[in-house]
């Protein structure tokens, strides 16, 4: 039975892709949830953690835990951030540390959006309509750390007018990888090109994912290549109701 859910929109959505956060809120409200947005929220700490700065990551993680410690559900429009909280907080807070138990308590309450919809809310049809051919990019942490493969596809298949066409290398990394993308731009860009070749091979107009960071990488590479294909977060597709121009 729907109730109240907290949302953690992630720092990148807050600052760069607010429309994704709004779309997520809209979808959740549409199926009956009340949204709790805590203004204390900022980042999960992943940038520092992935860069080897554990102490700094721990401080930010602690802030995250304090912000959401009494929430029953925290829904996140990102597999990567959800995995940081659910898995890597234990690397940040090893068993002997003070925050370990808190991390253990909060971890299972944090849900990536597509998982939350299909497993907690138990809906696949959220009443969306999107008349386009789309292809789905499996983001790495969602796929390999959270084992999210089918949930977003099940949701997409229920969208009216939408055709899902799989690309040949859906599971290959887009090349983002956080600071990797600016530490090794040539390699990161090369990985994106492999991916967009595969996207183009499907003839889809839109590439969908559940992580805005991957989409930022892919959109940047698509635009640089002069491609007409655009990127959309799953939440945006699920929020759509009108035929797209």
């Amino acid at each position: 039975m729907p109730g109240r859910v907290s949302i953690f929109v992630t720092c990148i959505v807050d600052q760069v892709f607010p429309r994704v956060g709004l779309a997520m809120a809209e979808v959740l409200e549409r199926i009956g949830y009340t949204i709790d947005f805590r203004e204390q929220q900022t980042c999960c700490g992943q940038p520092a953690f992935n860069s080897g700065y554990r102490a700094e990551a721990a401080q930010v993680a602690e802030h995250f835990i304090r912000t959401f410690r009494d929430a029953d559900f925290v829904v996140v429009p990102s597999g990567s951030c959800a995995s940081m909280i659910g898995h890597h907080y234990f690397d940040v807070f090893p068993p002997e540390s003070a925050m370990h138990e808190e991390a253990q308590y909060l971890g299972p309450r944090v849900w990536e959006l597509s998982r939350f919809l299909t497993e907690v809310a138990k809906v696949e049809d959220v009443g969306a309509k999107f008349e386009q051919t789309v292809t789905y990019h499996d983001s790495c942490h969602a796929l390999r750390e959270l084992h999210i493969k089918e949930a977003p596809r099940r949701l997409l298949r229920k969208v009216r007018g939408l055709t899902l066409k799989e690309m040949s290398v859906a599971e290959e990394c887009c090349g983002f990888g956080g600071t990797f993308s600016i530490k090794f731009p040539e390699v990161s860009g090369g990985m994106a090109r492999t991916k967009i070749d595969s996207i183009h091979g499907t003839g889809a107009s839109t590439v969908v994912s559940i992580d805005s960071s991957c989409l930022m990488q892919l959109q940047g590479a698509l635009s640089r290549a002069g491609s007409k294909v655009r990127t959309m977060h799953l939440a945006e597709v699920l929020a759509s109701r009108e035929p797209q121009s």
């Binding site: 607010p18 956060g21 709004l22 809120a25 731009p185 940047g220 635009s223 640089r224």
Partner: peptide
């Protein structure tokens, strides 16, 4: 970092209004 990013990709622009600002208005 934007220059490094821009070597191989178009640079994304931060939104003119953040999520939190829009949420407050909403």
């Amino acid at each position: 970092p934007a220059a490094k990013w821009g070597q191989v990709r178009e640079v994304p622009m931060p939104a003119s209004e953040s999520f939190r600002a829009q949420w407050r208005k909403r």
